[in-house]
Design a protein around this nucleic acid. Structure first.
Lengths: 201, 201
DNA sequence: GTTAAATTTAACCAAACGGTTAAATATGTT
DNA sequence: AACATATTTAACCGTTTGGTTAAATTTAAC
């Protein structure tokens, strides 16, 4: 029993596309097979079940995200530089993999326990983030803010604009010449500026 | 052909709960009927189809949100007060109707055109917001920021924490004694403070 | 008690779906 | 050409699902 790596990846790519649009339950395996230009039997040869396929994509998404984010925050940079890098990395990863927010938000509603398990299995540990923020508060670099609120704010500012792409494109940028991709690209600087302005002492 | 208002609302409430958890395609009509303690035939007597039911819920969600938000921004308050009220109203509505983010994010992925149509039909018009922000920039009340970025930031900070509830509860607040509801309640002041600090001149 | 109307029952239907199977075919390697 | 392997075909399966229907039952109002 052998596998062709190209075929394996082609199926994954197709699955990402269809799952992103239709959600898990709304996606048929035949659709994925069509998208990947294979037959359904081969799909089942390569991936045991629909559930398994979805899970593999989800785990990959999480493992794309978490280590890089931790790495940024463990660097020797000063705090504001860390925020800039965190935001930049986060937006870059999401720009390159815009399916991640859709998968995560679907999973949050339908299968929160599974999602939390995968996130925990990814090794994410926010305690160092919290400690760092507390230190900066003590040093008076930043204002007194609950660390968890700052973390939630930062993540919200990075991720939600990807979720809201159609709304941003068609409503918020309706009379603006700027395209969505430019808008997101400029957020790398804009979001970190916003956050730093909000918290600096 | 008559309807009982109580039964009608009972079905809607049940549908909101099941759709929120399972998503549109993952929800069976029999599940909604079970949740509402009725039989499936009555469900179809009251609501023509699964699609129709979902649509009614979605339209209601949007019509809950949009007029109140516009009203806040049309008030005679000063700009920072408007932001405070906007954030407060937004978070209150979402706290009272926590299903809205799940419905909206599902619809963004699976049916963006329909969602945009409903949002537009709600009468939302962000041009006054944009004009107001531009005026405040000219008056030097706030820093030079692209109005659309400020709008996206504000909405992100208000809505994403509702989407991310399980992550906030189980990961971010894991070692924090504060409960999710307290955390969200304190965001009313925290988010507006954050925004105002970020943009004030 | 009578009537009207809301609700339930019980059965049905066609279509769809994830998954399976064995044989046939195509592809790649030697 | 022979062989191994990846892929396809074509059919199948049991289950589930949204939606339907007519008759029976229950409930509410008078």
């Amino acid at each position: 029993m052998k596998y062709n790596k190209d075929t394996s990846e082609k199926i994954l790519t197709a699955a990402i596309t269809v799952f992103e649009e239709k959600g898990f339950s709304g996606t048929r395996m035949q659709e994925i097979a069509d998208k990947a230009n294979i037959n359904k039997a081969l799909l089942h040869y390569y991936y045991k079940s629909k559930d398994k396929l979805f899970e593999i994509i989800l785990i990959r998404a999480i493992q794309l995200l978490m280590p890089k984010l931790a790495m940024v925050f463990n660097s020797e940079d000063n705090f504001f530089k860390k925020i800039e890098n965190f935001v930049s990395v986060y937006i870059d990863i999401l720009s390159e993999h815009p399916h991640i927010p859709a998968f995560v938000s679907h999973e949050i509603n339908t299968n929160p326990k599974r999602l939390l398990k995968f996130i925990e299995n990814s090794g994410v540990n926010i305690t160092p983030f919290i400690q760092t923020i507390k230190q900066e508060i003590e040093k008076k670099t930043i204002i007194d803010i609950e660390p968890e609120q700052l973390i939630v704010n930062t993540i919200s500012l990075c991720i939600f604009p990807f979720i809201a792409k159609p709304i941003i494109t068609n409503i918020i940028l309706k009379d603006n010449k700027k395209k969505y991709t430019e808008f997101i690209e400029s957020r790398k600087k804009e979001v970190s500026r916003f956050i730093i302005n909000a918290i600096k002492n």
